[in-house]
Nucleic acid binder design. Structure first.
Lengths: 110, 110
DNA sequence: CTTTTTGTTCTATCAACATAGAACAATAAA
DNA sequence: TTTATTGTTCTATGTTGATAGAACAAAAAG
């Protein structure tokens, strides 16, 4: 018997502004956020866009620990979704003002 | 005849999300923003709080170039104010959701 | 003119973080 | 069981950016 990967998702009270802003203030992660917003749910490989998986895994970890996304494990695949309800409860209007800036047609990089 | 210091303040169209987020995602600058919000206007020395002036000058520059604050020169003193109207026009709700997190009684650092 | 105040610019240093290869772990498929 | 897929962890490297001292610039005060 082996162990499946488990993630820690911070509860709303533990989500603080500065780490959240630091997580969002990166071009790759802002791109991930926009993609997740348009796709609803996506796994790591879907969002690779030519980057190494280790880099993506790192960015997903930062976003997860900042409270921005939730990772649901289903077999080998890890499905990621934005925690929009939690973020709206914790910082009303913040994500909305950011997501409004997402390009409608997603760019090559970002 | 000598030259007075002149600052460049980006027009609203040139204010972009990523530099703005990067500017805000720093503990010192987030503190400056909260102070400016509560004070309305302040010069560099007022917000020093034990830091070297060169550091403060750097942070003010970052905030200025990100479009977050405006610097008005009056003799030797440089008065800084948040460009809330411009930011609200450019990214509705963003600054409001950030300023809502400012501590009511300002802390020692930040 | 000299001194003081305010803030910038220059320069160097240090720490934080993004990038990415390699090895590994877990599940699914063949 | 062997192979393929998905993603993490480890480690190293490089870059970005914050910190801060020193010299400088401008304006006001004495």
């Amino acid at each position: 018997m082996t162990m499946a990967v488990l993630y820690h998702h911070p509860v709303p009270e533990d989500i603080t502004l500065l780490p959240l802003l630091r997580a969002v203030a990166d071009p790759v992660r802002l791109g991930i956020i926009c993609h997740l917003h348009s796709l609803g749910e996506a796994n790591c490989t879907t969002l690779l866009r030519g980057r190494p998986k280790s880099s993506m895994s790192h960015h997903f970890q930062v976003l997860r620990e900042a409270g921005i996304l939730h990772t649901r494990v289903e077999g080998v695949q890890h499905h990621n979704t934005l925690r929009l309800d939690v973020l709206e409860e914790r910082f009303p209007g913040l994500m909305a003002s950011i997501l409004r800036e997402c390009p409608t047609s997603l760019p090559e990089n970002g």
